[in-house]
Design a protein around this nucleic acid. Structure first.
Lengths: 345, 345
DNA sequence: GTGAAAGCGCTAACAA
DNA sequence: TTGTTAGCGCTTTCAC
């Protein structure tokens, strides 16, 4: 491939009978170059089909102007929204994005990290895989002072920045809302407890129960992979329980929606028999009937903030005292959880 | 940042009293190196904290092992699925992915292309923005024999590969299905006719009408931005039409779903009064009530095929006679379009 | 305001 | 099987 040979600044220099350094300076708008010279150089560069060689430039400058991103998966609305925010801020600041997905596997996540390390990203943005048990694979970055920013599923790491929402409080609010609607036997469906998002939501759930003198029982707790298959299974178990639960708080919307669909298939009314609350505010939550009560998660903003904090760190090139940024969530009450008409409005 | 200085193959060479080239060879598992030497080199490389420098390597080899991707947006289920396929195949083959989004703007798309060109991607994968009017910004790639693969929203370009589905046929089938259900006044909602996906769907729609002796009328055609806002507007217009349409074929699922939601809000029954068919088979289509009849679009496979064709081209380093790859779609009939019980089963 | 020259770290042709 | 050596194309210090 690439049959045509590349034009370099040397070629331009030769063509204009000046030195390569002058060409280099002109091309990056260095102030010491005469306007006329600059104009000429830029013109001939265009004519000759010159393109800047990032490899050489990066090699020389020892930086890549690139940010690496590791996420658990790409095909979720939440992650796609985060990405959209990341890309926006990164490109506005002249940074490229290299992405890789761990496919929810610790092993693959280690691989991703190492690949990005070798491609010399200037910084790293990560949301952890489901089963990641330690964070040693990020030490190579930290040792080299390459900043690492976690979002959503974050690591407990002293040198890193974390962008999160208050999962504990959000879960507390969601659960309290169910209790206010009269629910007493509330099922919680969560994911791997290694991940802050799931463990904190469980804590918030428990706290809300405790505050309302409802005993927490393990029978009503389901730890799953948060897949559609799991949701359908859990729905089956719920249907077979006696006494039957009267509320469900699921850690994401896709799970909550699957539960609603399965319950209604079985003739159980939502919210009449069982009220349901999800998490994330995916578009799907506004489509399912009844519309899903859920926690609004500022995904795109999270991406923007993650990229902005990382770039801030890179530009200031100094240790920042920033540690954790908490974005605002809020409970969106829709019909899937409203048992008592005119309860709160 | 990066306070620690980097270990190079020279450092390893010095430490072991051998030559840099031997180190280089050992590190890439060159067959001519003695096993014992290789072992030692890899061991000390690890100890010394060596990492491969892609910049130098790329500069030397004049290739980046990187594929550039330009998409119209990232926050759609369809694109996210494509990405998941792209990333899978790319990483399996040792390629990195640099992504950028045109945000549906021709201007931004030109920028994206040029940025990726300068970062010397080995190949380019593109789905066009809504309003892109010419494809000149891809000529820089073609001139340098850098392969360009389009997917979904493709360009009419002789040197490029296109990965598509048969949009014409899919639309024909969708429309024919509506007609078979008894619809006669069918609305079509499409996007910018500059894009193959929308123009071909319109053609298929018209053809199906013609084959059934139904006259096409402009009153029943809506060309929109395919946004939620547009969908709600169109729904309003449909409600005010007399005689009222009895079917809707929308060019994507989000639009179809918005239409359903709006119609039902207004007390119009779907499919009873108006049957609705969408396009894409987003998860949302299985959640909306009634479940949405739609065209299954093999998004992840499309990503995989796009990456695989591009990489095939790169590896063989020769002009391939490949031009267009058509993936299989299929009509998924669900309740939103079934007017006549026991019609087809 | 411009030029000379060294070197970023790696690879590969050629030599041994 | 291993070593020597000459760049890849750019930036930047120092000199003028």
């Amino acid at each position: 491939m690439k049959s045509t040979s590349e034009v370099t600044i040397y070629d331009i220099a030769k063509a204009l009978n000046i030195s390569p350094s002058t060409v280099s300076r002109a091309l990056k708008n260095h102030p010491h170059i005469k306007k006329e010279t600059k104009r000429k150089i830029i013109a001939t560069a265009g004519e000759m089909g010159y393109r800047h060689n990032n490899f050489a430039s990066n090699l020389r400058q020892r930086r890549s102007n690139t940010i690496g991103v590791v996420v658990h998966r790409l095909d979720s609305y939440f992650i796609a929204s985060v990405f959209s925010g990341l890309e926006k801020v990164a490109s506005e600041n002249g940074y490229g994005l290299i992405i890789s997905q761990s496919q929810e596997s610790w092993r693959k996540e280690i691989l991703c990290a190492s690949t990005l390390f070798n491609s010399r990203v200037d910084g790293l943005i990560v949301s952890l895989a489901f089963d990641t048990k330690n964070f040693e694979h990020f030490n190579i970055f930290i040792k080299k002072d390459i900043p690492v920013v976690f979002f959503d599923r974050v690591a407990d790491c002293h040198e890193c920045i974390r962008i999160v929402i208050d999962n504990y409080k959000a879960a507390y609010e969601a659960t309290s809302h169910l209790i206010a609607q009269g629910c007493r036997r509330i099922v919680h469906i969560g994911g791997n407890m290694l991940r802050n998002v799931y463990s904190e939501r469980l804590s918030g759930f428990k706290k809300a129960l405790a505050n309302n003198n409802i005993e927490f029982t393990k029978d009503l707790l389901f730890i799953t992979d948060m897949s559609e298959k799991d949701a359908i299974e859990v729905a089956g178990k719920i249907l077979r329980m006696k006494p039957r639960p009267d509320g469900v708080f699921a850690s994401n919307d896709t799970t909550a929606v699957s539960i609603i669909v399965e319950l209604e298939k079985a003739g159980v009314a939502v919210p009449g028999d069982i009220a349901v609350v999800g998490f994330n505010n995916d578009p799907i939550s506004r489509v399912v009937k009844p519309n899903l009560t859920t926690i609004h998660y500022p995904a795109k903003e999270m991406g923007e903030v993650a990229a902005a904090s990382l770039i801030g760190l890179l530009k200031n090139s100094q240790v920042s005292s920033l540690s954790t940024i908490v974005l605002k969530h809020n409970l969106i009450i829709r019909n899937s959880s409203i048992k008592q008409i005119s309860h709160n409005s």
